[in-house]
Design a protein around this nucleic acid. Structure first.
Lengths: 195, 195
DNA sequence: CATCGTTATTATCTTTTGTTAACGTCACCA
DNA sequence: TGGTGACGTTAACAAAAGATAATAACGATG
């Protein structure tokens, strides 16, 4: 029995995959569902999972020393959500990943995925594409901190992520911009006053 | 004739490479030398090159609308220096890459490197490692902007990059931290006063 | 050894942000 | 339906950062 939803989701990740390759991935992936506020990953987790977001929206956040939740990024459809601590640094996650909207994922064990990729070189391009996507996003984010003022950062964010803006509270946006929600509110007022 | 310098440099990039694999890379790479202030890549460049820094130190900077040079990162020994614009976004580079110290590189055409990797799956792990390194660096950088104050960011930088700090001017550090050189000077004074 | 240019510091002033707290709005739920 | 909590805005104050300019320290170079 073929799950077309799954096929479609995986297909979007690597545009040049054969049906055979896709079936390999489907066999290894588990579809999961998360209600809003449910956690895909919690602090302290070590399970090396990658959650490909098929539908919905999640946020990555960390609890700082003052007990505040600081959102570092949001992950949308067709992108991988994972804890950098677990996957990149091999240490327990300091981050939570939480569903904002009802979310469906294809969840794959990272190490199992690596084995599949090693055995099927055609899939390597898929991995490359995913890593490139992540690098594109993070270099752009860093650039915004180095070159732009908070206000310019906000304007750029609204422009680049117009669809996401309306789906998440402002306080998450403030965190992602590296400022406080109060400051973001003032910036919005300033911008509105100039129009 | 075997170039041991080259072998050593490449070997550091991928710890599990066979001699055969290493020779493949050597054949494709050109050793280059740059005097301080020389450019490895200039604004407008489109040549898809990766410069592996074998020895020395370079900085990546961009000229903003006010004509100021803003340094976004420095690249040290055994790391790849390249323009994100060219490689990740397929557009002309807005960035310069400039040697700070006398620098020796192994320079490889990116697309040629991809072809070699596709033909020799064992090298794929090398690519993965390099991309992971870059992702580790950039996620840490973003985290510092979101979670830390400029002062904390500076303290963390000094701790993590003690060796580099003494090799580059403070104004580069200020840029990397997303603040002005004047502000960094004040932060240093504040810290010194508390000791 | 003197000089020039770059870099770092310091001062002054303005602008922005952080912090804390109060207030209105809204959604959700008992 | 009344209450509770989360969110965004606003206010007031303190702290920090940006902008600009002047000065001091330093290195390279002739």
């Amino acid at each position: 029995m073929i799950d077309f939803e799954k096929i479609k989701a995986i297909y979007k990740l690597g545009k040049e995959l054969s049906l055979q390759d896709i079936q390999l991935l489907i066999a290894a992936a588990t579809p999961k569902s998360f209600a809003p506020t449910a956690y895909l990953i919690e602090e302290g987790a070590t399970k090396r999972e990658i959650h490909f977001i098929v539908k919905g929206l999640v946020r990555v956040f960390i609890v700082n020393d003052k007990g505040e939740e600081i959102t570092s990024r949001v992950v949308t459809e067709n992108h991988p959500a994972t804890s950098s601590d677990i996957i990149l640094f091999n240490r327990p996650s300091r981050f939570y990943i939480q569903a904002i909207e009802p979310t469906k994922t294809l969840t794959i064990d990272f190490d199992e995925l690596q084995l599949i990729i090693e055995k099927h070189p055609k899939l390597m391009r898929l991995r490359r594409n995913i890593l490139f996507d992540l690098l594109r996003e993070s270099t752009t984010h860093i650039e915004s901190f180095i070159l732009l003022s908070p206000e310019e950062r906000y304007l750029q964010f609204v422009e680049n992520y117009a669809d996401i803006c309306s789906r998440i509270p402002d306080k998450y946006i403030a965190n992602i911009l590296g400022i406080t929600p109060v400051s973001l509110s003032r910036i919005r007022k300033r911008i509105a006053g100039r129009k």
